[in-house]
Design a protein around this nucleic acid. Structure first.
Lengths: 338, 338
DNA sequence: CTGAAAGCGCTTACAG
DNA sequence: CTGAAAGCGCTTACAG
């Protein structure tokens, strides 16, 4: 592969001049510029990003550590993150933690070793010592979706409180009184917040959330299945199951089917996170939808601000309720809402 | 961030010795090793991967260019690719082409500029000049899933011929005679092969595949919707629609629902690519499943072989039919197959 | 076993 | 406007 030296030789100038042309430095004669550009073209020269990074101490690369790529919510988030980063001139390297703290740390390590300019993370757990260390070390860092109390970095996330309240009101209107939730890991903020929003919304309607109606999940399908099996084995099973993410909802559906029950006739189901497939499940699933694209964009912008020395903003965007048919519907409202 | 110089100073040795310890070079005294390790620990030193890459001319990084991350098939592929790569000591950087050739080229460029050790690609189109150039330039490269005739690199893919034949036999048994397909882009190998396998299977049963029953899609949901609308508007609509990937099947479902028709009573539906949600759609969808994990592993191994100077192997793995309920079922076979 | 030195491919103050 | 030189943080032949 041709190096800057080859280009300099071919153009009959110094490597300094080649570098100036490549970086559009103003003080280069038109003639030198032409000769360099011709040489670049002739040799098919491409600057070595590794060398450039070593010299400039910046990689124009962002690290994105997400808890589970297979979760469509995070896949979508990752896609929009890359899109916005590209628009701002950054590449992004994704690290998938598979909801495993040690894998998360592995990726953070690797990313830091590669000297990424900044880190976007949706922590898989309550936060490892490494994550705290990284934030303290001055590496620009932003939390997206999930965050860790006590680590002082900008947070870009959705607030589901209002939407969960709307959901509970919707369920109440449909006559449901025994509502259960499959929670995410207690160590994650989203795991907690969704349960608390749910509990609070129930309380306002004078409904209780007994412990037996709180299933402990880990945002993965299998845990949704297990939790739902637990609910169904109860002497008085709930009338509604609310899964705190889309994968646990998938598991819940599995469990309900396996029991030979039907949604919403035998039991209602709602989920957090809207995904394209929810329109086509049997029945279409009522969900709390997050503004994924906007979250991704705001997170990237906050990180770029931090990297480039501007003041970053924490952002909280509201989630919203999308009513479909999985919780039942009353006779007066036969239209299905997309 | 501490550099190798700091470690050397702290340990009272030269940077050469530090480097040797870090790379477990045999000829280092036990005492020097201890001192270096202690210094590394004290300083929290991590080698700068950028500098190391510049010096060694290798990045221990693989590039993976996929045509669409939002397609669950590719998401899963990417996940397993990263897993296997990690096991072999490589990181992977994913480039998402969104089925757009120019975006694909952008990612290939960026990846090459970063001097990745090898490139895994599932081409979004018939292959750009750039892709050919890269393969010729000696950059280790392997095609996965899709490939480009005339570019001589190892190919790791699934062969759907047998499974498509099984599918067509299944459809024929259920009494279906008018079968349509939503094809992928003609420029992609998977786009072509699936149509050809389908056509051939029909031919063997004495059935024709009229042009009107071949919808042109692009592996995205919207195209599946359009193609299906076209089929349904035909004077004699097909009895079965076979979508050549899972996203077009999603679009087909959209179109069928919008028309107020039901699957499989009014029209049957089958798809290529199995994904977890197909179990929970209404009805569960009959598909041709690819051995995604095995494909990913074989592709990474082939690429590592190429990079490390061994002889890589092209691999073709069979896909298999998974029968569910979206094509109807006869009275004697009431069990639903997972 | 160890260190001084060269060099990977760039960028950038410095001097002219 | 231009070039020689230093230096980013490593690794590794070479000499001892």
């Amino acid at each position: 592969m041709a190096s800057i030296k080859d280009v300099a030789a071919q153009a009959g100038v110094s490597v300094a001049t080649v570098s100036r042309v490549l970086n559009s430095h103003p003080s280069v004669s038109a003639e030198a510029r032409t000769r360099v550009l011709a040489a670049v073209d002739a040799l098919g020269y491409r600057p070595n990003a590794v060398a450039r990074s070593l010299r400039t101490a910046q990689t124009r690369t962002l690290g994105l550590v997400i808890s589970d790529v297979l979760n469509p919510y995070f896949t979508e988030l990752a896609r929009f993150v890359e899109e916005e980063a590209r628009a701002l001139g950054y590449s992004v390297i994704i690290g998938n933690a598979d909801e495993r703290p040690e894998l998360q740390d592995h990726h953070i390590r690797t990313l830091i070793d590669r000297r990424i300019d900044g880190l976007l993370v949706s922590p898989a757990d309550g936060g490892s010592p490494l994550m705290r260390e990284v934030s303290l070390s001055g590496t620009p860092m932003v939390f997206v979706d999930r965050w860790i109390p006590g680590i002082d970095v900008p947070v870009v996330r959705a607030d589901g409180t209002g939407a969960v309240k709307d959901l509970v009101a919707h369920l109440h209107e449909l006559g449901h009184r025994r509502l259960a939730i499959i929670a995410g890991p207690a160590a994650t903020t989203t795991g907690n917040e969704r349960v608390e929003a749910f509990r609070e919304a129930l309380r306002e309607l004078g409904l209780a959330l007994p412990d037996a109606y709180i299933g402990q999940g880990d945002f993965q399908a299998a845990s949704g299945r297990r939790a739902t099996e637990g609910f169904l084995a109860l002497p008085e099973p709930p009338e509604v199951v609310f899964a705190a993410d889309n994968l646990m909802a998938l598991g819940a559906l599995d469990a309900i089917r396996a029991r030979g029950l039907r949604v919403p006739d035998d039991i209602a189901l709602a989920a957090f996170d809207d995904i394209p497939w929810f329109v086509h499940t049997d029945p279409p699933i009522t969900t709390v939808a997050q503004p994924t694209a906007e979250l991704a964009r705001a997170a990237v912008r906050a990180l770029a601000d931090l990297i480039e020395g501007r003041t970053p903003q924490s952002v909280t965007l509201p989630a919203r309720l999308v009513v479909r048919r999985s919780c039942g519907q009353d006779a007066t409202d036969q239209r299905s809402t997309r």
